[in-house]
């Protein structure tokens, strides 16, 4: 009885620590990204209720100035090498991207420096989202909710300005917040 409890507790702890996803798996890796320029990409994304992970990663590539026609797997590898996406994530090309993942990628792509928790524990979806919300770059919401197309366009626009100029103009931020 005691051994069963110990085994169950260990399994529970392992599951909690590793998460329920399968890290490193890339589903739909041969899906080809559109390779469109950023104006066309943003126009298309703005019309969509959700953004797929493939499209979200393509947006990050455009943010980094990489307009290339890659497959989803190549894109994941490239972003993993640059530490823009986490090594622990699993990827599915057609799954809607969540706000947490988008926040993590934007945080890493912009080279932001967060608060105490982020400094001590490293970037995580939850705290990257909180940091971006604190800076007025993302709207309130939960990390596991999907991001809408119009919202992603707005986030990319702010991130692009931050990367190029080091600040975001107040008119693009949530009222009352400024960089």
């Amino acid at each position: 009885m005691k051994a069963t409890v110990v085994v169950m507790a260990a399994a529970m702890a392992a599951w909690t620590l590793t998460g329920c996803g399968t890290p490193g798996v890339v589903a739909g890796g041969n899906v080809t990204l559109s390779g469109a320029d950023s104006a066309q990409y943003l126009d298309k994304i703005s019309s969509q209720p959700t953004v797929t992970e493939a499209q979200a990663l393509e947006g990050i590539m455009l943010l980094l100035g990489q307009q290339r026609k890659l497959t989803f797997a190549e894109c994941v590898k490239l972003l993993k090498d640059r530490h823009i996406v986490s090594q622990r994530w699993d990827f599915r090309a057609e799954r809607p991207a969540t706000r947490g993942k988008v926040a993590y990628m934007i945080y890493q792509a912009c080279g932001m420096k967060g608060g105490l928790t982020l400094t001590l524990t490293g970037p995580s979806q939850r705290y990257c989202l909180r940091e971006l919300q604190y800076r007025g770059m993302m709207a309130p919401g939960l990390p596991y909710n999907p991001v809408t197309g119009m919202e992603y366009v707005a986030i990319l626009a702010r991130a692009d300005e931050l990367r190029r100029t080091g600040r975001v103009s107040p008119v693009m931020l949530q009222e009352g917040l400024s960089q």
């Binding site: 320029d37 950023s38 104006a39 066309q40 990409y41 943003l42 943010l63 626009a157 692009d160």
Partner: peptide
Amino acid sequence: IRTGLGARVVLRFADNSEVVINRATK
């Protein structure tokens, strides 16, 4: 008109008004 990331367009209207279209705008 639509612009992409890092883009900027300046329009001069016939009455001398000026509109600057910033990045990621339609």
